[in-house]
């Protein structure tokens, strides 16, 4: 079962994603970070298979964290889940930096699971 780390400053989004992941039966929720810095720390301690990360967070944002995660671990699987996903330039920036893909908020469970299963 693939281990999933969620990084989002919103507790309610983390809860939504945790529920989707838990009910899928295919993935295991292993932790929640609230900003980019916590993403880096939890990536090191929990070794997730997939990181679902927001872009717009206080402190270290998702783009900065993505850049650092890819530099530390080029094989890292990061899916950005963000309300800015529909902004073409933001989407392209994430893909170029190494994100597997970008999911827009509001998201549907089906889209999240299909994306995670494709990784």
């Amino acid at each position: 079962m693939k281990k999933v780390l969620i990084v989002d400053d919103s507790i309610s989004v983390a809860r939504q994603l945790e529920k989707i992941i838990a009910e899928s039966g295919d993935f295991q929720f292993i932790g929640h970070g609230k900003n980019g810095l916590e993403a880096l720390k939890l990536h090191k301690t929990l070794s997730p298979d997939i990181i679902c990360m927001d872009m717009n967070m206080p402190g270290m944002d998702g783009i900065t964290a993505l850049r650092s995660l890819v530099a530390l671990d080029p094989a890292v699987n990061v899916v950005m889940i963000t309300s800015l996903g529909g902004v073409g330039d933001k989407f392209k920036e994430c893909i170029k930096l190494g994100a597997r893909t970008v999911i827009s908020k509001p998201f549907e469970a089906e889209t999240v699971l299909r994306t995670l299963r494709n990784i």
């Binding site: 529909g86 989407f91 893909t101 827009s104 908020k105 549907e108 889209t111």
Partner: peptide
């Protein structure tokens, strides 16, 4: 369910590869 960019729509549909 959101305002999307066309490339993102295609990825979500599984029509194109990330590469």
């Amino acid at each position: 369910m959101a305002v999307k960019f066309f490339g993102q729509f295609l990825v979500e549909k599984g029509v194109i590869s990330r590469e």
